[in-house]
Design a protein around this nucleic acid. Sequence first.
DNA 1: CCTTTTTCAGCACGAACGTTCGTGCTTGGA
DNA 2: TCCAAGCACGAACGTTCGTGCTGAAAAAGG
Lengths: 219, 219
Amino acid sequence: MAGRPRDEGTRNAILRRAADIASKDGLEGLSIGRLAADLGVSKSGLFGYFGSKEELQLATIRAATGVYLGEVVHPAMTVPPGLGRVWELCDRWLSYSERRVFPGGCFFFTVTAEFDARPGRVRDTVAAAGLEWNRLVASAVGDARRLGELTEDTEPDQLAFELIAFMETANAVSLLHDDPVAYRRARNAIQRCLHASATDAGSPVLRRLQPVPESGPRP
Amino acid sequence: MAGRPRDEGTRNAILRRAADIASKDGLEGLSIGRLAADLGVSKSGLFGYFGSKEELQLATIRAATGVYLGEVVHPAMTVPPGLGRVWELCDRWLSYSERRVFPGGCFFFTVTAEFDARPGRVRDTVAAAGLEWNRLVASAVGDARRLGELTEDTEPDQLAFELIAFMETANAVSLLHDDPVAYRRARNAIQRCLHASATDAGSPVLRRLQPVPESGPRP
DNA sequence: CCTTTTTCAGCACGAACGTTCGTGCTTGGA
DNA sequence: TCCAAGCACGAACGTTCGTGCTGAAAAAGG
C-alpha cells in the first residue's frame, strides 16, 4: 500500500503562478485549463491537487498571503515598535507593489475589488486577510502612540485607514496610468500624515527618513 | 425603407442594468445571456444592440459615466469655486458610494481594479475616465488655492491624490466589511486634510461644514 | 393596400469552462 | 520480485460563453 505522494514543490509552483495570474486577471479570470497549459501539465492532473476551482482559489490566497508576509510584514517586524516600524510597514508595502512582486500589482487589491460584493468563502477569506492587515497597521500605530511618539489624541484606526488609503491608491493609480509618480505621492502623504500626528519624541524618527524629492526639474 | 428604430429607452434600460451588474461582478462577469434573461429579452436581440461584447462593455462605461456625472459632478459644479466646491465634490462622491447608486458600490472602482492590468480599449476608456476625475478634483483644488482659500504651497495634484485615496478606500472598506464607519473615517480625513492646507480665508468655509461626530458612546 | 426595411426570437455553432472517468505508470512496502 | 496505492494523463461530460444565421412579426413609405 503505497503510491507517490503529491509533490509539494509542484503544488507551490502552481500556486505561485496562479497568484501571478490572479493579480492581473482576478481569481475568476484564473482558469484551470490555461493555468495547466501555462505550466505544461494536464488540466485534470492540476485539478487533482485541489479538487475544485474554489479550493484552488482559496489555496492561491493562502500562497499569496505567504508571499505578502515574507515581503512586507515579517521584514517590517524586525524593526522595533514605534514610528520607525509604522513607516517601515508602509514603505515596504509600497516597495512590494512598486517592484511588481505580483505582475498585476498587489494581489489582494485585485481580488478584494473582485469579491467585495459577492458572497462566498473566497470573499470571507479575502475579508479576513484585509482585516488582519488593518489591525496590524493600527496596532503598529498604537504602539507608537503608547511609546509617546504620536500624540495622545491620535486614533490608531483612523490613522491606519489613512495610511492604507494612500498605499492602495498608489497601487491603483500606478497600474492604471503606468505612473510611478503615484508612489512618491503616497510616500509624501504618509510622511506628512505621520508628521502631523508626531510628538517631539517622534519627530526625530521621521527626520531620519530620507525626504522624498519633489517632481523632476521645472523648466 | 423604414422599420422600427431601435428603442433608445430599451437600450438605456439595458445599459443601466448592465452597469448595476458590472458594479458587482465586473465587466467580464457581465454576460450577455444572463443580462438578457434578467431583462426578459432574447440573447440575440440584446446582442443586436451592440454587436460585440466589447462594445457592450464600452457602452456600459459610457452609461455609468452619465450616472456618475449626474450624481456627483454636475450637482457639485453648481456651488461656486473654492473650498466649498472641493468639499461638495468629495461629500457627493461619498454619498454616491454610500447610497449604493450602483449595488456594488462605485462602478468605476470595480472596473478599474478589473482592467488596470489588461490591455485593450476597455482599459483605455476606464483610464481616461479616471484621469478626467483626477483632473476635475485637482482643478477644484487649484481654484481654491487661486482664491486664497488654500496656502500657496498646496500642490493640487498631491492634494487631489490624497482626497481620492480617502474616497476610494472608504468605498472598498465599506463593501468588504459591510462597515459604514469607513465613510465617517473618510470624511474626517478629508476635513483634516483640507483644514491643514487652508488659509484663514478658507477656514471659515470649513467651519461652516457640520463636524463629523466621533464614534459611538464610550463606556 | 402592398412593399420595403428593420427588429427580434429561436436555433446552431465552435470554443472554453469546471469536472469526471478510466487507464497506464510510478513507486513504496510486503 | 511482485503487488497495490495513487498520481498524471487524455478524453469526454454537460454547461455556458460570445457570435452568426434564419424566419416571422412589425412598422414606415408609396
